[in-house]
Design a protein around this nucleic acid. Structure first.
Length: 885
RNA sequence: GCAGGCAUAGCUCAGCGGGAGAGCACUCGCCUCACACGCGAGGGGCCGCUGGUUCGAUCCCAGCUGCCUGCACCA
């Protein structure tokens, strides 16, 4: 037995040691052949480029808690880990490297580039996995997957082909979101809107064959090069006579029609709008309605193309400046207003998005979304907290077809081949070598790759071996729970729902727990540019993984963001240390103790024992209940309070007398309870603080029921003796001790000085209770001479306090001055008087007595009685004190 | 604009139809043989504002104000 734990808990070696041991033991591994009930979670796969941030830390801490808890509770747990190839993000990383080397992907070519990305991944791609391990994540690493690995790529092809065959994948030439830096299309979700200060330019377009002109307002004057109409509202009286006529588009000298469309807001600006179908989503729609030409004026880098006349070759902002300057020179710039509006940006590189006309692949999501909506409505998947269901439904109801093609090189290449001979398309699971229509070998594979989220959408079943019918799928699909942040509810959760239902004919998970965002202490989003980022790895280095995990858990209240600061983490570091030292104390006093030789039933427990066991039982219940409901903070709170305030503050303190005494039976009894409570507590805490609990648990005396604590059973309280009556008895003792301490504190009695105490009880029962715990009262109240009984004489000069039906008198001769005691009593009396006033008033209210439930009235009557008794005693004491003056 | 959330101690937040809670911070006293990352005691709140429902509202309802977050945007 190791009773020589260090004085303070030092996490680093402990964490390394146990994590390695768990992995070597296979403690994290799931067995699909197990007969235990399944519990499965798939990790939200972090980007392979990722570095552990606070969001990951919270997300994975919560998953780990669930997995460890379920594992200990008798479930066969599969926590499926892996990483996402993160198409654009990863490609950007490697492109930056190339840029630093003075080259680019086009210079080295597609195949070498893709190889280069694989190489990058092999060398530095997996660091987040190591970081998750430092956090303590108990994933089944043997099963680690990557969205680009062979099995998952096969699943991607299978899904693509089946969707295509079902007519749910199609190509279309539409306006899409284009990132001129990444050179790819983006889905609507991948565009982030941010309010930016800009300008509203008012341009004057001359009406042909007239001396009039129309003023149009725009935030993007350069797009006028692609204007193909000017629109006004059909009812706008100002322009009735102009509808159907033409304006001469300045700079390009093109005649374009003035059209009428109800979309136009008469009250905005001049009521006339320039229409650029190829570069604005609303204009695109209007262009379709009026059969307008779509003139694309940009190339894929956002540089003006040959359609832009003299501006060709100019970058879009350069073109903007020149267009404005030229219009001004021609007197066609009416004015410039300051204007703030939301600008779409690429979610990967923050470049302003260009609406761009191009041919892309789409998933027709209508029927898929319908099924995904129904599954949640019918409760097949439950979203927790439930408020997010509404967001989910809103999005599903307004869903647009999903643009899935990306013009990058890193990703799953679209399995479609174009035939140069017949022009037909071949979509195939295997790499095609001939056209399926004409047999020609002159075929070229589509150069696009799929949206990263396409493969993520398949994650719950692709990681389990689909399309094979694997045992893993049979055992673990649908998964039990998905833990994720709300920021990827649409990106990921919604699409997994659609794909799971389509291809597995069942939901991918039965519950979705959506957690909050981790912010800084001021509630700001953590970001590198703000410089307010707290690095989880630094936190782990400084405070230990357990303290960090417990902090996140304690603040993981549902539906509320976490404001994190290092002071808080330090607070929970202290908690770890407290647990450590309580354990050290226990171990120091369990010398020679063998748990195997002790039968709980045979022990004659005293009130304190029964109390702590009852409290333990309650805590076990609360913890299990809270985890069941995803109330992580409540579980953490219950465990914190029990550990610190029940176990350490009271039980250990009360146990000392027997532990240090020389009665063997008493010592054995206290040792037994100490052992049981600590051992159970460690198990209870293990999912939250895996490392420290394992370290202490391994130091406990006797045979352990399992090799590691993570293999041990989670406490369920069924074997624990509870006795709420005994527990209540000790509450009286505690109240008495607190009262004695209160008097001592208020009257500045030095802690080193013992006092005499007379405990005058109203009932014989109280006498018995207090007599049994006399030792505790002496030690914890620092009482020397202790008298317990009924109708006791109290010395004239004494300080008085009450606890339940016990009047406590501390003879104060020589201890304190009379004036101090008088002040203290008056303060007490005032407090009690307030209660009396309140309850008297309440009970005098006829309506209250007539309507309130009996138990409420009874409770209040009791409280009034107590207060009246209390004040009587206090006033008597006050009288005596005042007589002394 | 539409939707949702939040408002409780100095700070961060629990709670909830029957006398306001925690952690941190603060004040006072203690190096008491597990722990000063500690121990003991204490101070501190019109529970955002205005109405309504109720015997009773911090809690339920309506409105208002102030923050936050999605989504959609009038060029």
């Amino acid at each position: 037995m190791d009773t020589n734990l260090n004085k303070g808990y030092e996490p680093h070696d402990v964490e390394r040691k146990w994590y390695r041991r768990w992995e070597e033991n296979g403690d994290f591994n799931a067995d699909e052949k197990s007969t235990k009930p399944p519990y499965a979670i798939v990790i939200p796969p972090p980007n392979v480029t990722g570095v552990l941030h606070m969001g990951h830390a919270l997300n994975n801490t919560l998953q780990d808690i669930l997995c460890r808890w379920k594992r200990m509770s008798g479930y066969e747990v599969l926590w499926m880990p892996g990483t996402d190839h993160a198409g654009i993000a990863t490609q950007n990383v490697v492109e930056k490297q190339l840029a630093a080397e003075g080259t680019d992907r086009h210079a080295i070519g597609r195949q070498p580039f893709v190889e280069r990305v694989w190489q990058w991944r092999a060398e530095s791609g997996g660091q987040i996995i190591e970081q998750l391990k430092r956090l303590g994540a108990s994933c089944d690493w043997q099963r680690e997957r990557f969205t680009m690995d062979e099995g998952l790529s096969r699943a991607v092809r299978e899904v693509f082909v089946r969707l295509y065959e079902d007519g749910l994948i199609y190509r279309a030439n539409r306006l899409i979101n284009w990132c001129p830096r990444c050179h790819t299309a983006l889905s609507d979700l991948e565009v982030e809107h941010e309010d930016k200060k800009g300008h509203l330019w008012h341009l004057r377009y001359p009406v042909i064959d007239s001396d009039r002109s129309l003023v149009v307002a725009t935030t993007r004057p350069e797009t006028m090069l692609g204007d193909t109409a000017v629109a006004v509202h059909p009812d706008d009286e100002r322009y009735q006579d102009l509808i159907g006529r033409e304006v001469l588009l300045p700079l390009v000298d093109r005649a374009i029609p003035i059209i009428a469309d109800a979309y136009v807001d008469k009250d905005f600006g001049s009521g006339a709008v320039k229409i650029t179908p190829a570069h604005d989503f609303n204009d695109f729609d209007m262009g379709k309605r009026h059969a307008l030409a779509e003139i694309n004026i940009f190339d894929e880098s956002g540089v003006v193309n040959e359609n832009g006349g003299v501006y060709a070759g100019q970058e879009r902002y350069e073109a903007r400046a020149n267009v404005v300057a030229d219009l001004e020179n021609q007197g066609l710039l009416e004015r410039i207003d300051n204007y703030e509006n939301a600008v779409g940006e690429c979610y990967r590189c923050k470049t302003v998005i260009e609406p761009y006309l191009s041919l892309q692949w789409y998933v027709k999501v209508g029927s898929l979304a319908e099924a995904a909506t129904k599954a949640v409505q019918q409760g097949e998947t439950r979203i927790v907290p439930q408020q997010w269901e509404r967001t989910y439904f809103d999005w599903m109801n307004n869903i647009q077809d999903w643009c899935i093609s990306r013009q990058i090189w890193w990703g799953h290449r679209i399995p479609a081949w174009y035939c140069d001979a017949c022009g037909e398309l071949t979509v195939s699971r295997e790499d095609a070598t001939v056209c399926s229509h004409c047999g020609s070998r002159e075929i070229r594979q589509d150069t696009d790759v799929l949206d990263t989220w396409f493969s993520s959408a398949l994650w719950p079943f692709s990681t389990m071996g689909w399309p094979e019918e694997t045992e893993t799928l049979t055992k673990f699909y649908p998964t039990s729970c998905l833990v994720t942040g709300f920021d990827i509810l649409f990106f990921w959760v919604a699409r997994m729902m659609m794909m799971g239902l389509k291809f597995m004919h069942d939901v991918p998970f039965k519950e979705v727990y959506i957690h909050a965002l981790v912010r800084d202490a001021q509630g700001q989003k953590m970001s590198k540019s703000k410089g307010n980022v707290i690095d989880p790895l630094q936190v782990i280095d400084e405070y230990g993984a357990d303290a960090f995990r417990f902090t996140l858990t304690s603040f993981a209240a549902m539906g509320r963001d976490i404001k994190l600061s290092t002071e808080r983490i330090a607070g929970y570091r202290n908690f770890c240390n407290k647990l450590w030292n309580a354990s050290r104390f226990a171990l120091m006093n369990l010398d020679g103790f063998d748990p195997a030789r002790v039968e709980m039933e045979a022990l004659e427990l005293d009130d304190a024992d029964r109390w702590i066991l009852t409290r333990l039982s309650e805590t076990i219940h609360q913890t299990n209940q809270a985890l069941e409901e995803y109330k992580f903070n409540e579980a953490a709170g219950a465990l914190y309070a029990f550990t610190w305030h029940s176990f350490c503050d009271w039980y250990i303190e009360m146990a000392k007398d027997d532990l240090y005494g020389d009665e063997a039976a008493a010592r054995l009894r206290v040792q037994s309870v100490l052992f049981v409570v600590l051992e159970q507590l460690l198990r209870l805490l293990h999912p939250f603080m895996p490392f420290i609990t394992e370290e202490i648990w391994q130091s406990l005396p006797g045979e352990r029921p399992a090799e590691t604590i993570m293999q041990a059973d989670y406490p369920d309280a069924s074997g624990l003796p509870t006795d709420s009556a005994g527990a209540e008895r000790i509450e009286l003792v505690m109240e008495v001790i607190r009262a004695i301490r209160n008097v001592r504190g208020e009257m500045d009695v030095p802690p080193s000085r013992q006092v005499a105490a007379i405990l005058d009880c109203k009932s014989a029962e109280s006498v018995t209770i207090l007599a049994e715990s006399a030792a505790a009262i002496r030690v914890l109240g620092k009482v020397g001479e202790l008298t317990i009984g009924c109708n006791l004489d109290r010395p004239e000069q004494s300080a008085t306090q009450l606890a339940g039906d016990v009047e406590i008198a501390l003879p104060l001769a020589g201890l304190v001055d009379v004036a101090e005691e008088e002040k203290r009593l008056q303060k007490e009396i005032a407090k009690v008087q307030k209660d009396i006033d309140l309850f008297t008033r309440k009970l005098a209210n006829e309506q209250f007595v007539a309507n309130a439930p009996d138990h409420v009235i009874e409770k209040d009557r009791g409280k009034l009685r107590d207060a009246e008794e209390k004040i009587a005693v206090l006033e008597e004491s006050l009288g005596k004190i005042q007589a002394l003056k």
